[in-house]
Design a protein around this nucleic acid. Sequence first.
DNA 1: GCCGGGTGTGAGAGCGTTCTCACCGCGTCG
DNA 2: CGACGCGGTGAGAACGCTCTCACACCCGGC
Lengths: 342, 342
Amino acid sequence: MTTTGARPPTPTLEQVAALAGVSRATVSRVINDSPRVSPAARDAVHAAVEALRYVPNRMARSLVTRRTDTIALVLSESNTQIFADPFFARIVRGLSARLADTELNLVLLAARGGREQEKVARYVQQGHVDGVILISLHRDDLLPDLLARSPVPLVLSGRPFDGRAVPYVDADNVGGAEAATTHLLQLGRSRIGTVAGPLDMVAGLDRLTGYRAALAAAGAPARPELVAEGDFTEAGGSRAMARLLSEVPDLDAVFVASDPMAVGALRVLRAAGRRVPDDVAVVGFDDAEVAASCDPPLTTVAQPLEEMTGALVDLLLEQIGSGGSAVEARLCGTALVRRASA
Amino acid sequence: MTTTGARPPTPTLEQVAALAGVSRATVSRVINDSPRVSPAARDAVHAAVEALRYVPNRMARSLVTRRTDTIALVLSESNTQIFADPFFARIVRGLSARLADTELNLVLLAARGGREQEKVARYVQQGHVDGVILISLHRDDLLPDLLARSPVPLVLSGRPFDGRAVPYVDADNVGGAEAATTHLLQLGRSRIGTVAGPLDMVAGLDRLTGYRAALAAAGAPARPELVAEGDFTEAGGSRAMARLLSEVPDLDAVFVASDPMAVGALRVLRAAGRRVPDDVAVVGFDDAEVAASCDPPLTTVAQPLEEMTGALVDLLLEQIGSGGSAVEARLCGTALVRRASA
DNA sequence: GCCGGGTGTGAGAGCGTTCTCACCGCGTCG
DNA sequence: CGACGCGGTGAGAACGCTCTCACACCCGGC
C-alpha cells in the first residue's frame, strides 16, 4: 500500500500572534513563561497555540539563544560491546533520571572507529549540543582531542589517560581494587590472581594497580602469571579465568575487575570443579544486578553510580552555565559489598 | 585545580568572506561545494576557513534549509535491558555503517516511561531530526502515536501492533518460527515446547504464532503448558526453561524465541542433566554471535539484519526525500542455520 | 561591432526565533 | 497637579546561514 500526502506547513510565532491578537514578542514571552504578561494575553496565546498545534522551532530559537538544551553522551568504542555492559545501562539510566525534570535532552552518539569519531566531533562542533559527556575511553582515543579543540563543554567519565586538564568524574578504582584484594588476603588466601580489565582503559589499569598495591602492602611478591587481561565481558572473563587456572592450578582467590567478567569466571571455576568460595574466593567489581543473583552471590566492589552520574551532570552544567572551563575532577568512593563468593 | 577562560567567539561566514575577499554567498557556495565557483575564489575561501577554523553553524543552516541531516533511533523500553541484547547492538552497528559515508548523523534517544517518551516526542517535533526509526515497540507504547502526530518521517522496526498505516521493516518472524518448529518435528520430536518472547511485543507474538502454526500443520494438539513466556534476556530464558521443564518433564525439544534466552535455556537444561540435542533439541532465534560459540553451538533462525537496517534507512530516506508519506512495509525472509543443538 | 549565452559574483531578502528598547497607560507620591 | 515608576506591550534589530536574483564579464557567431 502506498499513500502520498504533502507535509503540512508548521505554524510560526507570527501566526500564533495574529490569531491571539498580540505581537510576536508577547507570544514569545508566554512561551518562555516570562512573568510580565497579563493573564488575558496569556490565555489568548495559550488558546492560539492549542488551536494551531504550535510547536516552537528549535533551530530558530537556538540560533539566537546559542543553546540547544541538549547534551550528548558519547561512547567511544570500536565495537558495540559496551552496550551489553550493565554498567553502561546504569549510566544511561542515571543520566536520564537526573535530567528527567530539567529542560535538557540526552542523546547518545556511538563512535566506533576513526571515521565515526570524526563525524561525532563534527556533529558536536557544529553546535548541536550544549555539552558532552565522554564515556568508555581507550588509550588511543582521538575524541578527547577532537572535542577539547572545540569550545563545547566536556566532561569525561573516567580519568583521562594523559592527565590533561579536563573535568572528569571517576570511581576510586585503585582504592576499590585494593580493598577487594585486601579482603581476600584477610581471608587467609595467598595465591590471589586477578582477571584485569582491558589495560588500554583507565578503569582496567587502575583496578590492576589497586590489586598490586594490596599485594605489595602485604609483602607478597608480584607474580605476572597471576594476572590475566579480560575485556570487561562475560566471555572475556571466562577466557581469562581459564588461562589463570591453567597457569596457576593452586589459585585460591581471584579479584575480577568487573561483575560480568566475574560471572564468566564463576562459570569456569564451577566447570573446573572448584568450589566458590571454599577452593577459590572471588571478588568482583561494579555491584551489578547480576552480582546479587548469580551463584554464589558475588562479593563485589560497589561504585556509587547515582552519585557519579549526578556529578557528571553537575560538572557539565556548571561549565555550561559559567560559559568558561572550570577544570574540576571528582573522585567517588567505593565500598566492598560482602556476599557469599568471598 | 580550577582555571577559567571565556568561550572564544566562533567565526561566521561573514568573517570568512571578509578574510577571503569575497562575498558571503561565495563562501556559502564553496562550503556546499557548488560547481559555479572559480578555482581562485575556492582556494581563497578554503584558506580563510582554515585560518579561522571556521565551522558552519548548523542551527542557522537548518533554519533555512529545514534539514538537520540527523536521524534518530528511538528506543522505547521501560528498562534499559534492551541495550544488553546483541540484536540491538547489531541494529546500531548496521545503521551507523549504512550512514557512515553519508552526511547523516545518527543519534540514539532512550525513552523509558511516559515522561521520557513525551520528552523524546517533543525533541523530535521541535525539528531536531529529519526522521525517526522506532525500535523495541511494546503494545501500549505511546510513541508511535506521539510521533505520527508530527510531520517528521517515521519508520518502525517491527510491524505495528494495530495494523496502522506506518512504514515498517520486519523479519518474517512467523515464517522463521514455523521453520524452526517444523525442523524439530522433522527430527521426530513430539513434545516440543517454546520459550516465547514477551507477548506485548510483535516479535514475541509472531514467533509464538509461527510455533503454533507448525504444530497445528502437523496435527499436534495445542498444549498450553508447553508455552513459557520469557523477556528476551538470558535470565528470563533460564526461568522460562526451568518452568517448562518442571511442568513437562518429558519435553524433547524446545523452540526459544531469542538466542540470549536460548543460552539461558541451555544452561538450565545442562544443570538438569538433559543432553542437548539428544534428550532435548533446541532451536533459537536471531543467529546472534553467541549462537556459534555456545555449547553446543545453537541451531537458530537467522534474520538478515544488514538487509533490515538497510531497508530501514532506505524507507526513511525515501520519505524524507519525497517530503510525503509513502507507507511501505518490507518483510525480510529468515533462514534456519543448522548447528549442533538440533 | 553587436548581440546572445554562458559563468562567476554579490546584494539582499528571508528562515523563526529572542531580546533590547521605547512607549503607553495608570496609580502614587511629592 | 505634574513628575515618577512600573507593569504590559509592540516595533524592529539581531542570530548565521541559504538562495534567488540581477549584474558584470567574456566568449564566439553573425
